[in-house]
Design a protein around this nucleic acid. Structure first.
Lengths: 179, 179
DNA sequence: ACCTGAACACCGTTCAAGT
DNA sequence: ACCTGAACACCGTTCAAGT
């Protein structure tokens, strides 16, 4: 019985850590479409080693942003405790937008995760949306996948000078969801 | 004095027409990111000829969808004549979404054009939005670039089974814009 | 004036050889 | 068990040579 994390050989573990560290930095600067070659090179490993640890770009993005996703998930119950579910959803969406704006590659992860109804991000948001809908606060004909599609549209390819527009756009969406 | 359209040598004109025709078909099937190589090949011309006529992918997209853009522009005054400006904007946005869903490459054009405040598409929509704002029907703190960002988010990378969701999402946005 | 396609650059992905 | 990087595939873009 273990905790589900495979034990790696010392050199493999070191390469894994270096890849995560380098990818974090490079995604930060260049965004989620940075070349994998540059990440491998920056980490001082062969490109094959990157592929061994992370068979897809998505796997790498998930590993790099695992802690932020965990934070988004953890925020759900604490928000529900403090405020009404519609306000909680608004707050949670703003947090998601903030992560996308702060961390270069996060929006690349959001882009794929938002399309799946049972990804960690979608599942977390769904709890808030469903609660708000059950309370009759938000319209019933919208799913979390729908909502994240709109949110993703707000942050994708955004220019630095447009960042200040995002709050307004999130508020448009939330207002549009009110019953 | 001419009409602004350069007169091409007969073979050049034929190649131009073939490129447009082939590009229309291929964008339809594969979307705006189809390879330029496949378009040149399908048109029976060298890749250099494609670049001579269309120096960028965007130039090709604009040429292919010129008539649809013209329709969107032409629709503005006729919509304003028939209904209130907020309803006109909703109708116009639905038309824009329909084009993006119907024509494979149109959303690729929308993606770039929507970011410029004076592209033909943005300018056309702006007239409706401004009228609706002046009439006090829609909130004043949103621009057409903002709005097209949301619209683009709705249609980009949409799976066939999600197409039916787009009407709901457009209505969420319009509702959210109401004062 | 226009066309062709080879050539170059760049990136993703695999896999044989090595430790 | 893990790593390396050459090799292959693919695509965008340019430009010398040709008509």
């Amino acid at each position: 019985m273990d905790d589900g994390v495979a034990v790696l050989r010392a050199d493999a573990q070191r390469n894994y850590d270096r890849l995560i560290h380098t990818a974090t930095t490079i995604f930060e600067v260049q965004g989620a479409s940075a070349t994998l070659e540059s990440i491998a090179k920056g980490a001082g490993v062969g490109i094959g080693t990157l592929y061994r640890h992370f068979p897809t770009r998505r796997a790498l993005l998930e590993a790099v942003y695992a802690d932020r996703v965990a934070k988004l998930v953890a925020r759900v119950p604490s928000l529900l405790q403090k405020m009404s579910p519609d306000k909680a959803l608004l707050s949670w969406l703003e947090m998601t937008v903030d992560y996308s704006l702060q961390y270069g590659g996060f929006s690349g992860l959001l882009e794929v995760a938002s399309k799946e109804k049972d990804s960690p991000i979608t599942s977390a948001g769904s709890q808030l949306l469903t609660k708000a809908q059950e309370a009759g606060l938000l319209r019933n004909d919208v799913t979390m996948v729908d909502l994240l599609r709109l949110i993703n549209g707000i942050v994708v390819d955004i220019a630095p000078e447009d960042v200040k527009r995002t709050n307004t756009l999130v508020s448009v969406i939330i207002t549009g969801l009110k019953t």
